[in-house]
Structures are given as C-alpha cells and as structure tokens.
Design a protein around this nucleic acid. Structure first.
Lengths: 152, 152
DNA sequence: TCTTTTTCTTACACTATATGACACAACTCT
DNA sequence: AGAGTTGTGTCATATAGTGTAAGAAAAAGA
C-alpha cells in the first residue's frame, strides 16, 4: 500500500483537467498511472486511490447486508461516481464534471495526500476545513483519541 | 529516535531554501537526508522530522475511523500539509512556499532543535516567542508542571 | 599568530516543471 | 451533414527548482 504525503496547490483548466505535480507523481506506483480511481469523498472533496487500493476499500463494504435497505443504499451511493482515470501525456487527470461540481471545484485546487488517498479540494473549501484554532484542535484531539481508547 | 539539540541562525535564499548547518546535519541519520518531513507546527513555526519519526507520530492515528467525520477532520488537520523534503547538494532544504508563508519566513530564520524535532522560525517570531522575563517564566513553570502532576 | 581547512554566503547558470493557449479528434445532438 | 460539446495532445513561455562555483568568514591546527 502506497503511503502518500504532501500538500500541493494546483489549478483545474478549462477542460476540467488537473496536473499531478511531479512530487506526487513520483509517489505513485508506475503501474497505477493509468489505473487510478476517483470518487466523491465524504466531505466536499474528491478522493483518488490507486485501483488496487480502491478495491481494498470496497472490500470493506462486503460485510454489509445487501438485504438491508440502508446498507444497499449506502453501497450504491458509495460507488456512485467512482470512475477510473489516468494520467495523460502532460501528467494531468481529467476530473469528471459531476465530481468537480460536487466538490465545488472551479479554478484553484489543493491536492492533499496522506495514507493511501489523494484528496482533491477546492482551495476555498480546503481552507475552511483546515481553519481551526489550536485550542479547539487540542480539545478535538482529546475527544478523538479518548474515544479511540474506549474502543480498544 | 534521534535526539536533536541546538539553536542555529540562518537565512532563506531567494529560491526559498535554508541551509542546514553542519552542526545540525551531523545529528541527522544519513539515511534521512532525503527523507525528511516538514509541516506546520503550532505557533507559526514549521517542524521538520525524519520520515521515520513522522511515521511514528502518525501511527497514533491508525486506529481512527475514516467513516467518522470528526476522526477524518482530525486526521487531516493533524497531517497539516506534511510534505517530504530532502537536502540538496549544498545541504539546503527547499521550504514549500505555502509553509514559509504560514511561518512568516522572509529572510532571517532560526532553527531550533530538540527531541526529535527541528523547528523552523522566522527570527522575528522566534524572538517574540522567547521574550519572557524570569519571573513570568518561573510562574509558567509552576502552572505547567503542576498541571502535569495532576494528570498523572 | 599564521596557515590550513572547513563552513557559510552569495551569485549565477542551467534544468525541470507548471501553465495557458491552441489545434484537432471523437462523440452527441439536432 | 453540421454545430456544438467533450476529450486529448502539443507547444511556448514563465516560473520554480536544482546545481555549481568563488570569495568571505569562521574554526581548527601548528
């Protein structure tokens, strides 16, 4: 499983393409250049996985109960919009229009890579997502990490 | 885990690079020269880790649930734009523009190394951060250390 | 103290990358 | 078929990134 890291600024061009900066491209396995999957994220962003990782992710859904209405709906929505994409000759990926609309991407974007995901944000949404003051953040840390402890 | 120590003055050049002084470079494990991670710290400074240490830090996040909104946001903010960097042929590191802006770094910088972190400050912010009179400092010690005791 | 070596600083030159414009192919719709 | 839309590739240019070198300053050794 690739471990991505980095935060990159970029733009979407008139045709809806975003350049994958070299710093990020270098982290991608070569055989994934033409086998990436992009989908809606849970927040107003898009997520790019390698095809392999995407399959791993969807396997997490396998335990769900396809006789259960809510589960079925979730699976449907989760898969909706997932599209395979690839790098073109200029290291760009074409973002399907539906998805860029969903993420409210118009011109400036931020690529935010961590773990096995590359998140694609409109700059505006990215900034408001990240705007949090240190005190709030440390409270958040307590909540999140203590919950984690209880789970164990 | 490396244990850094020292305070170094330096400058950022027109291309956004900062020289890692030899005294500091010697403290870095050789195999980390091209695998350093930099990201935003609290208090308008930047923090550099070795990639290994960074991964140790982020392992704390591993049990979190990416289907949970708060957890996701926490992960994102914790990562905070971490980016991998390396030393060039002249022992410099290129600071991503976004980050130097965040830390208000324009010309003079201070590298402040302790534990497994190297903090990068603009000289101005560093000085105002460190400007404190002895009485205040001792009061601060009481507050901080007694709180710690209660936690234990 | 003087010499030698190392480290720092600055400047510059070269390479790689990002960006925007444009041309054209494929496809859709009327 | 023709007009419009969408997808893909190419190119030129500006900017960002990287490497090299020379002199100044500092440190180390004799």
């Amino acid at each position: 499983m690739p471990k991505f890291i980095g935060e990159f600024d970029g733009k979407i061009d008139a045709k809806g393409r975003i350049v994958i900066p070299v710093g990020l491209k270098k982290q991608l396995p070569e055989d994934s250049f033409n086998h990436l999957v992009i989908n809606r994220g849970f927040d107003k962003c898009l997520v790019i996985y390698t095809r392999n990782d995407w399959e791993t992710e969807t396997q997490k859904l396998e335990g769900l109960d396809s006789f259960n209405k809510l589960d079925r709906q979730f699976i449907r929505i989760f898969n909706n919009g997932a599209t395979e994409i690839g790098l073109d000759t200029a290291n760009r990926v074409l973002i399907p229009k539906k998805l860029s609309q969903y993420a409210e991407i118009e011109s400036d974007v931020v690529l935010y890579a961590y773990n096995n995901k590359i998140e694609v944000w409109s700059k505006k949404n990215y900034e408001s997502q990240m705007a949090i003051d240190p005190d709030e953040f440390s409270k958040m840390a307590e909540t999140v990490m203590s919950k984690k402890k209880n789970d164990e």
